[in-house]
Simulated scan of single mutants.
Amino acid sequence: MWSKVRDFLFEKAGEPEPDRNKHTLDELHIAAAALMVEAAMLDGNFDEQEKSAIVHVCKRHFNIDCDTARKLVEEAQKQQKDAVDIHNFISKFAPHFDHAERLKIMEMMWEVVYADGELHSYEANLMRRVCGLLGVKDQENGDLRKQVLARIEAGNNSLQTASV
Rank of each mutant, 00 (worst) to 15 (best):
H61Y: 09
R60D: 15
I30E: 03
K51C: 04
F62A: 06
E48R: 06
A34M: 15
L42S: 06
A40S: 04
C58G: 02
H61I: 13
L25G: 15
K51L: 09
H61F: 10
E27C: 06
N63W: 01
N45I: 13
K59C: 11
D47N: 05
H23T: 13
K51Y: 07
F46S: 01
I30D: 03
H56I: 09
H29C: 10
K22A: 15
M36V: 10
D47V: 04
N45M: 10
E48F: 10
E48C: 02
A34C: 14
A53Q: 04
D43W: 00
V37F: 05
S52I: 08
A40N: 02
E48L: 13
C58N: 07
E50F: 03
T24N: 11
H29D: 12
V55P: 02
Q49T: 11
E38I: 09
D26C: 10
A32K: 03
V57I: 14
A32S: 13
A31D: 05
K22P: 13
A31Y: 11
V55D: 01
A31H: 07
N63K: 11
F46I: 00
L42C: 08
S52Y: 03
V55R: 02
H56T: 14
A53D: 03
N45R: 06
H23G: 08
A39I: 12
F62M: 11
S52C: 06
V55L: 01
K59D: 12
H23K: 07
V57C: 07
L25Q: 13
E50P: 01
N63R: 10
H56R: 12
V37D: 05
I30L: 15
Q49L: 14
F46Q: 00
N63F: 03
A53T: 03
H29L: 14
I64H: 04
L35V: 08
H61L: 11
L42Q: 08
T24H: 09
D47Y: 01
L28W: 08
R60A: 15
V37I: 13
F46C: 03
R60G: 11
L25T: 15
I64F: 05
K22C: 13
E27W: 02
D26M: 12
D65K: 00
C58T: 07
L25P: 13
L25W: 12
I30R: 01
D43V: 00
H23L: 11
E50N: 01
A31M: 14
F46L: 10
M36Q: 13
A32W: 04
V37K: 03
A33K: 08
I30C: 06
V57Y: 06
R60F: 13
N45F: 09
M36G: 10
H56S: 14
H61D: 14
E27L: 07
K59T: 09
D26H: 06
I54M: 08
N63G: 05
Q49D: 05
E50M: 07
A40F: 07
T24Y: 09
A40C: 10
